[in-house]
Simulated assay, not measured.
Amino acid sequence: MKTVIKQLTEAFGPSGYETEVTDLIKTIVEAHVDEVKTDVLGNLIAIKKGAQGGRKVMLAAHTDEIGLVVTFIDDQGFLRFASVGGVGLAPLVGNRVRFAGGAIGVIYQEKGAWKDLTMDKLYIDIGAETKEEAQKMVRVGEFGIFHREFTDLGNRLVAKGMDDRIGCVVAIEALKKIQNPKNTLYFVFTTQEEVGLRGAKTAAYGVDPDLGIALDVTLTGDTPEASRMEVSLGKGAAIKVKDSSLIVHPKVKDLLVELAGERKIPYQMEVLERGGTDAGAIHLTKVGVPSGAISIPTRYVHSPSEMVDVRDVQACVDLVIALADKDLTGIC
């Protein structure tokens, strides 16, 4: 599992430019599913057919990561940029960014007090000495991502892009183990989640599922003086109750809790005060879809060094496997 996590987190895939990630996932999953297809927005859809009379379950994990886009190049070759997705100021200063063409730069700030820092006071130094030299390396409109390597700390793993490549890993590991499921499973590796759940909206319309489950990261409350939240690393899968985009259907929440209890899968309940997942788009599809989320507890979300616990990841995999064979009569 760690090998796949390293491959996916180190891949290039800001919102709208996820092809490197989806191509990699396709090579991993195509031998384990009945059908693989890509839709117009780039969502990769891997289907495992279920028994007659089973339900259609959409399991969504997004492939995109937060990033930056170049907006201006000055005469000295420094780049100005805008955020792609929820990029905060604190993780930027002093960090490196990598562009699709391979150029790497350092993000730094103009002079001034930290309290007055805004995005327009930051720039990227790619080592160019003139605008012309810079333009040979990076063009206006080019997207970039944090440049950080995967690090294995034992049970704890650190990388950029855990949000939500780790959800993709949960889907991959589950689909590899599921054999002859009762329900037809649509593992959808979605695009452009970080900029408005866009891939999930169109994919859910096409799939038209009976049940929707997002596989995504969630915050934790287990670091020094963290916001109070009853989610910690190492305590199991997080079963969502609500977030900014979704109040989980009570039957879906109860189903996931029941399955975790039956299979002795460690779990914790997640109430996320801000943020959302693809389930926010799925549950509003057509006439509505009962939806929920299985979340991977993650520290330092939307930073270049997001941390997960491999035991929580395995618990999420086990919960997806349990759901695949569940009789969903009365749920959807």
Rank of each mutant, 00 (worst) to 15 (best):
158 V>D: 03
263 R>Y: 14
132 E>V: 11
329 T>Y: 00
257 V>E: 07
181 P>M: 01
241 V>G: 08
197 L>M: 14
189 F>E: 04
238 A>Y: 04
240 K>N: 14
173 E>P: 03
75 D>Q: 15
274 R>L: 10
182 K>C: 07
302 H>K: 15
324 A>G: 08
214 A>K: 05
258 E>C: 09
78 F>V: 02
73 I>N: 01
97 V>H: 00
73 I>E: 02
201 K>A: 14
64 D>M: 03
36 V>W: 00
76 Q>S: 13
256 L>C: 13
185 L>E: 11
6 K>N: 08
74 D>R: 01
151 T>C: 00
267 Y>Q: 01
31 A>S: 14
47 I>A: 04
274 R>H: 10
234 G>D: 10
136 K>C: 01
113 A>W: 03
216 D>A: 06
294 I>R: 15
130 T>K: 04
109 Q>R: 15
28 I>K: 09
234 G>W: 09
117 L>T: 08
215 L>R: 06
103 A>V: 09
188 V>M: 10
161 G>E: 01
268 Q>T: 02
196 G>T: 05
303 S>P: 06
282 I>Y: 01
301 V>W: 00
131 K>Q: 14
118 T>R: 12
251 K>G: 11
287 V>Q: 13
280 G>L: 07
216 D>I: 06
62 H>L: 08
67 G>E: 09
46 A>T: 04
105 G>F: 00
214 A>R: 07
44 L>N: 06
175 L>Y: 02
203 A>G: 14
150 F>E: 13
22 T>S: 09
133 E>R: 06
260 A>F: 02
219 L>T: 14
35 E>A: 01
326 K>T: 14
44 L>C: 02
305 S>Q: 03
64 D>F: 02
271 V>H: 00
53 G>V: 13
167 G>I: 07
194 E>D: 08
184 T>V: 05
124 I>L: 02
17 Y>P: 00
284 L>D: 07
322 A>E: 13
327 D>E: 06
179 Q>D: 14
89 L>T: 04
110 E>A: 15
60 A>K: 05
258 E>K: 15
177 K>F: 06
11 A>F: 03
159 A>H: 06
304 P>S: 04
201 K>H: 03
140 V>K: 08
213 I>S: 10
293 A>W: 01
165 R>C: 13
276 G>E: 06
192 Q>S: 12
123 Y>R: 08
136 K>I: 12
185 L>Q: 10
176 K>R: 04
83 S>N: 13
316 C>V: 06
237 A>P: 08
159 A>F: 02
